[in-house]
């Protein structure tokens, strides 16, 4: 992150309640241009809810989200889609469409055509995204013939094809093998390096620390730390939030094995 970066997206004291339970409490977060933020936290910490709120898909019960200084809630779905791409955790596709048609949905806000009827610009962007995620060979395959990892790469290509300047990815590397995990993280990192803002929810703390500029730690709906990976992923946070500790040999162990 450079010092000249601007704030693109701003969550201002956002709270979300569902069924009498606080899913997010008073969360504030600035997302700058050209930075990659890793959202970490245990299951149920509110990572997905925060991402959906940032995208304007959920209306906060208190607080608000601003995109480039204006409230995101007043924008049309199409206007939001042209600025922000979303890779959800749920990658269910109702129909067994082709890889190319799935990736082409990334250009939906620019027309909504199937792949073979896209304009030249849109098609180039889809092709580039497929190339970046190593999914070019899957263009003409039907989804139900593909493995979970291959489908995940097409979903990532779909999100990249939008060429949006903000990219929100909810566990983008789940279902990927180690090599494709690293490749996906490099692709997301490259987006940030060329000026986009990337927010991704991650479970892998190692990869979060290695690729992200900042790490935001959510615990039971509260943002308890946000800063550089070294500062945030310290022994105390690891033990308190995740119940783990770093092992000298690398990797993590349970912080309190007796309780497990």
């Amino acid at each position: 992150m450079t010092q000249r970066s601007v704030i693109r997206l701003l969550a201002d004291r956002v709270s979300i309640r569902r069924d009498g339970r606080d899913i997010l409490s008073d969360v504030s977060l600035e997302v700058h241009s050209g930075e990659m933020i890793a959202l970490v936290g245990p299951n149920g910490a509110g990572k997905s809810t925060l991402i959906r709120t940032l995208l304007g898909l959920l209306e906060p019960d208190a607080g608000g989200v601003m995109l480039d200084g204006g409230p995101v809630s007043v924008l049309s779905a199409r206007a939001r889609a042209r600025q922000m791409a979303y890779l959800p955790q749920d990658r269910t596709v109702a129909w067994s469409v082709t890889g190319a048609d799935l990736a082409a949905l990334g250009r939906f806000a620019w027309g909504g055509a199937a792949y073979d009827r896209l304009g030249a610009t849109d098609r180039d962007k889809v092709d580039q995204a497929l190339e970046l995620t190593g999914a070019t060979a899957l263009k003409n395959r039907l989804l139900h013939t593909l493995s979970g990892g291959e489908q995940a790469r097409l979903h990532l290509a779909r999100a990249l094809a939008s060429d949006a300047s903000l990219l929100m990815a909810d566990e983008p590397i789940a279902a990927l093998d180690p090599r494709h995990q690293l490749e996906a993280m490099q692709v997301l990192r490259a987006q940030a390096d060329r000026g986009a803002s990337v927010v991704c929810a991650l479970h892998d703390l190692e990869l979060a620390g290695r690729y992200a500029d900042r790490v935001a730690v959510l615990d039971r709906g509260r943002l308890i730390a946000c800063g550089s990976p070294d500062a945030v992923l310290d022994a105390e946070t690891l033990a308190q939030v995740f119940g783990v500790m770093r092992q000298p040999s690398g990797g993590f162990a349970l912080a309190d094995p007796g309780q497990a």
């Binding site: 959906r52 995208l55 898909l57 049309s76 779905a77 199409r78 939001r80 889609a81 042209r82 922000m84 791409a85 979303y86 959800p88 749920d90 949905l105 990334g106 939906f108 806000a109 909504g112």
Partner: peptide
């Protein structure tokens, strides 16, 4: 929800 994020009203 994803359809909305793609620009569907």
């Amino acid at each position: 929800e994803t359809a909305q994020s793609l620009g569907v009203n």
